[in-house]
Write a protein that binds this DNA or RNA. Structure first.
Lengths: 341, 341
DNA sequence: CTGAAAGCGCTTACAG
DNA sequence: CTGAAAGCGCTTACAG
């Protein structure tokens, strides 16, 4: 077992000072060619690598990004992490990932933990509970300490910081409009409770699209799901008992659950009922029939968030004061579940 | 903007030494009740939190775990991370996640980066390329430096360390046996190339099950996929041109692709062809028909890996020398795709 | 009971 | 050209 070698040890072996070793390794012009080569050769031989923790302490920056998301077993969030990771790596950063599990307390604890020196900045998406409570003091506190934060997807207007979002309302509008264009009129909505920011916006887009087309909004065709694990009954009830020709679901799970419910009730998809979802994940792609969805492009969102954060970290201090909100383009991916009527 | 407060600042404000502040905050008995209360009150007021980087340097441990996995947009791996995260958090650890993207070079670079002081130990699953090359020097090097490593799922016998696996061969055997028990005989196999350790083992289980039941192994019924992104053609060819009554696929994607291929060829699932998959992910659950699978329980694997790693990290030094390999139980989750024949 | 000193592993302004 | 010193933020054995 050969422990990692330090500057101190190299210095001792070579009988020079630590400073000399440090400078030699960093190609300082202060050091003679001779010494430099000797030191570098020795360092290479012993596979010297600087201790990153020591550098972090010295430089007051860790070159790591903290990510806080509600859950990771979730295609969209996994995709965002992947996007962050790619950009972060390219620019020499690592990532620490913490999960809030949709809990306010865990979100707060994780933020405080990471804020104590472990990272240079945050990328985060709010937990449901945080959105319900509307308590964001943990975030403003971190920002106040001078640590940059980029929020994505589940954001809030109560905090001023960089943000990366999609135009949820417009994307939903377009999705519903596409159904209308194809001849559908009796369009149901399966959405989340209103405090989930993106759910609310998508609901607004749905309503707007109906209104724009002079289609009556029927309350019985709108289902708001509180707990995703128990959405089946509500959805089955909707599918079985309402007169519908299409369903717009604000996520994949609701969409595929609607399809299952239709099957149970002998309703053929897409012949008797068209379905459109949100978030272009693996379910939509491999479902039979495959499901038309609004694609969020998590890779791009993650990449953009990472770029914004790192740009801010590396900006020459106080320059670039103003916060930006980037809107990532969405795209309607047409598949089998939404034929022309 | 109020920057985080340090011991030094508190000491200055209170006109005592840094050592006194440090001890007071840690409830040292050396400090008078008076001073302690004064210091603690002040610290609370200014929301003092020790700088974790400084502690890491001082204590030579970071309380963070490095995770290196092939990809994160993958239900099983996301599940494992979730399991690791839960246990790590309970025990006061954070996690840094790096992705190899199935590349040997990225795996090496990431390991070296994290090994330079950022973490206390690794949890990793090998990239495909690493498994193909059979080059594990980066891992043995890290272990040699005294940093514990726990491998999971995609492991190798060439490295001695703690491991968490499932019995891939047995699980595959059981899956195929269940098909045989239900009356299926013409069972195809969709698997990976042999250098992927788990693919190879699952293939062996399949072969063993056929042999045990005196069923002839037909080479044309076995397809080995190199590149998962282009698996459709090979799978369609298999489904369209071979005389089959069931398919065993070594992952979800192959299973659902087989179902798609069957539909294209007017083969009814499960009436004309039964399908069984591996990894109990979201696709299997929501596919229509839903797919019977071997459940790997990534949460449990991740949790176990984290427990083993942290136990080793916290063991009183050199005690507990021997490495263990934990085998996580799998379970056959019966769904619609495999009725009795 | 309090504080100066040494040390974790590094960098860099400064003295010689 | 080389090295001692100070410092990043903390802890702790030791002296007073």
């Amino acid at each position: 077992m050969k422990r990692k070698v330090t500057l101190k040890q190299i210095a001792k072996e070579l009988d020079v000072s630590i400073s000399t070793v440090s400078k030699a390794l960093r190609d300082s012009s202060e050091i003679s060619e001779d010494t430099r080569q000797k030191v570098q050769a020795f360092a290479k031989l012993y596979n010297y690598k600087p201790n990153l923790i020591a550098l972090s302490l010295k430089n007051k920056k860790t070159k790591t990004i903290g990510i806080i998301i509600p859950e990771i077993v979730h295609h969209f969030f996994a995709t965002v992490i992947s996007g962050i990771e790619t950009v972060a790596n390219e620019r020499g950063y690592n990532v620490m990932v913490c999960l809030s599990n949709e809990s306010f307390d865990k979100e707060v604890i994780n933020m405080e933990m990471l804020a104590n020196g472990s990272i240079d900045g945050f990328i985060l998406s709010l937990s449901k509970e945080t959105q319900a409570k509307r308590d964001f003091h943990h975030i403003s506190e971190v920002i106040n300490q001078g640590m940059p934060v980029v929020m994505f997807d589940r954001v809030t207007n109560d905090i001023l910081c960089d943000k990366v979002i999609i135009d949820d309302s417009l994307a939903a509008f377009n999705a519903v409009q596409s159904l209308v264009n194809k001849g559908y009129r009796k369009i149901a909505l399966i959405t989340t409770v209103d405090y989930v920011s993106v759910g609310k916006l998508r609901t607004e887009g749905y309503l707007q699209a109906l209104r724009n087309n002079d289609i009556e909004v029927v309350q019985n065709r709108i289902v708001k799901i509180e707990d995703i694990d128990q959405c089946s009954e509500q959805i089955e009830d909707l599918i079985a008992n309402q007169d519908l020709d299409a369903v717009f679901a604000v996520n994949e799970l609701f969409a595929v659950t609607a399809i299952k419910a239709a099957k149970v009730n002998q309703i053929a998809i897409p012949k008797d009922l068209a379905v459109i979802g949100f978030t272009d994940g693996i379910i939509s792609k491999y479902s039979s029939p495959s499901i038309t969805t609004v694609s969020q492009n998590g890779i791009k969102m993650g990449g953009k968030a990472a770029t914004m954060l790192i740009d801010r970290l590396e900006a020459k201090d106080e320059e670039e004061e103003s916060y930006k909100t980037e809107v990532i383009e969405t795209e309607l991916v047409s598949r089998e579940s939404t034929p022309e009527l």
